[in-house]
């Protein structure tokens, strides 16, 4: 790290550059395709930038794929899931991290086991159950299976473990009671990890494709990725310009969220300690 010889540093930078190019290339290609006129797609070849810029692709994608509705659906569903997950996971994580109670070991073992159960083991019965209760093809059916999150409990607990016990003793002698302790001490102190988990949850459920594909049969309920997938299978399948524009529209909100929340997210996932 101190004084590597020049060739070593050059090689390092070269490798980093290659990685960055590969990592960013699909995004660049998406924008390039989305901005080029449809007719120019094949003619432009490998040129770095399209010969003409054409924003009509975005309008075409927005209208034909009805992306406005899809984005709204995505927002409602992702928001509802996030809210429910925070309400269920934060208290549970606190109890697992800081309260001794009979059965906590077994219950937390269940949480860990659930972390490892893949979607395919649960997909079929969950789908049948949702249909039995008449929730297939409803917003509730899209949200309900995710109202709790084993990963959320796990991640938040991990961070809450680092809250000093003395602070919780102080809360007890201050007479805060379990709910006030949770809301006034534990939650403010766990903000970094709560933020990290929130970002994670939004990523996961905004981007989720499998479950909406099963449940949201009517086009009105489609989430952005589902809408886009249907769009590319339909008649417009070879209009890559419109598809790329649609992809850009679907990707943008999460990308922007990530750029804003990056520091918090990375810190939270890194198990960053609580300031104090």
């Amino acid at each position: 790290m101190t004084t590597s010889p020049v060739p070593a540093r050059l090689i390092k930078w070269l490798l980093v550059l290659i990685a960055v190019v590969i990592s960013l290339f699909p995004f660049y290609w998406m924008l390039r395709t989305a901005l080029a006129p449809q007719s120019q797609q094949l003619a432009d070849g490998l040129g770095f930038w399209p010969s003409h810029l054409d924003f009509g692709n975005f309008a075409r994608a927005w209208n034909k794929a009805n992306l406005g509705q899809a984005l709204l659906n995505g927002l409602i569903i992702t928001g509802a899931i996030l809210l429910l997950q925070l309400i269920t996971c934060v208290p549970a994580a606190y109890a697992f991290a800081k309260i001794r109670f009979r059965g906590s070991g077994v219950l937390f073992g269940v949480v860990l086991a659930c972390l490892l159960i893949p979607t395919q083991a649960t997909m079929v019965p969950t789908f049948i159950g949702i249909n039995i209760f008449g929730l297939g093809d409803t917003r509730i059916g899209l949200v309900l299976p995710f109202y709790s999150s084993a990963f959320g409990i796990f991640l938040l607990r991990q961070q809450m473990l680092s809250i000093p016990d003395a602070l919780l003793d102080a809360a007890r002698t201050d007479g805060l009671g379990p709910w006030r302790t949770l809301l006034r001490v534990v939650v403010p102190m766990s903000m970094p990890s709560i933020a990290a988990f929130a970002v994670f949850s939004v990523f996961t459920h905004w981007n989720d494709y499998l479950w909406p594909l099963l449940v949201a049969r009517s086009p009105d309920l489609a989430t952005p990725p589902l809408r886009l997938a249907v769009f590319q299978q339909a008649d417009i399948g070879f209009d890559y310009s419109a598809l790329a524009a649609g992809a850009a529209i679907v990707t943008a909100p999460i990308l922007i969220l990530f750029l804003f929340a990056q520091r918090r997210f990375v810190q939270g996932m890194a198990g960053g300690e609580i300031a104090g």
Partner: peptide
């Protein structure tokens, strides 16, 4: 009680 390492609420 005055706690060891003060136990002040950091936020």
């Amino acid at each position: 009680i005055v706690f060891q390492h003060f136990a002040l609420y950091p936020h």
